[in-house]
C-alpha cells in the first residue's frame, strides 16, 4: 500500500478553454505532487489527451484519479500499467560548438541516440531527440560538457501497447 512509485495517468478531456486550469488547480489545491503534464489532441476531435506523471502511493493515486474523474469536463481517466505502456518525450537541445571537432563529436552522439540535427549556426547545433525521459537525460549528460545553451522538453506522453485502448 505504502509503496511510492511514479505513475502515468492518461486522461481524455473535453477540448475546451479552461480545462487545463481546472486540472492544474485541482492538483495544487489538493497538494498532489505532479511531475509533469502534457496535453494534446487525441483520436477524437472534441477530446484532448492529457498525460500526467505523478509520484505517490496507491492511496494518493486513487485520490488523484477519483478527483480528476469528478471534473465535469474529464471524460476518462486511467492509471496506465507501466509494464505495458510506451512513454515517449521530445527534447530539443541547443549546444555550443566551440570548434569543428566538437561539432562532429556532437553529431556522433546525436546519431547514437537516434537524434537529428535540426538546426545549425556558426557556433551552435540543435538536436532533436525522442525517447524515454531516461534516454534523453543520458544524451543531455553527454553533451553537457560542450555547453548547453537551451533545452526545451515536452514532457512525456504515453500510450498502452497492444490492441487495448483505455
Amino acid at each position: 500500500m505504502d509503496e511510492s512509485r511514479t505513475h502515468i495517468i492518461s486522461a481524455l478531456i473535453l477540448h475546451k478553454p479552461g480545462v487545463l486550469q481546472r486540472v492544474a488547480g485541482l492538483f495544487t489545491r489538493r497538494g498532489f505532487n505532479i511531475e509533469n503534464i502534457t496535453v494534446g489532441t487525441s483520436e477524437q476531435e472534441h477530446l484532448a489527451r492529457m498525460t500526467i506523471i505523478a509520484k505517490g502511493d496507491e492511496k494518493v493515486l486513487e485520490q488523484i484519479t477519483k478527483q480528476l474523474n469528478k471534473l465535469i469536463e474529464v471524460i476518462k481517466v486511467r492509471d496506465l500499467n507501466p509494464e505495458i505502456t510506451v512513454k515517449l518525450e521530445l527534447c530539443l537541445i541547443k549546444v555550443h560548438t566551440a570548434n569543428e571537432k566538437v561539432r562532429s563529436e556532437i553529431i556522433q552522439y546525436a546519431n547514437i541516440f537516434s537524434g537529428r540535427i535540426i538546426d545549425v549556426s556558426p557556433d551552435t547545433l540543435t538536436i532533436a531527440i525522442t525517447g524515454s525521459p531516461e534516454k534523453i537525460e543520458s544524451l543531455i549528460d553527454l553533451v553537457r560538457i560542450f555547453g548547453i545553451k537551451e533545452i526545451a522538453r515536452t514532457g512525456p506522453t504515453a500510450i498502452s501497447r497492444g490492441t487495448k485502448t483505455m
Partner: peptide, 8 residues
C-alpha cells in the same frame, strides 16, 4: 455517492 470520499 462520491467515489472520491471513499478511503479519503
Amino acid at each position: 455517492i462520491d467515489p472520491a470520499e471513499i478511503g479519503k
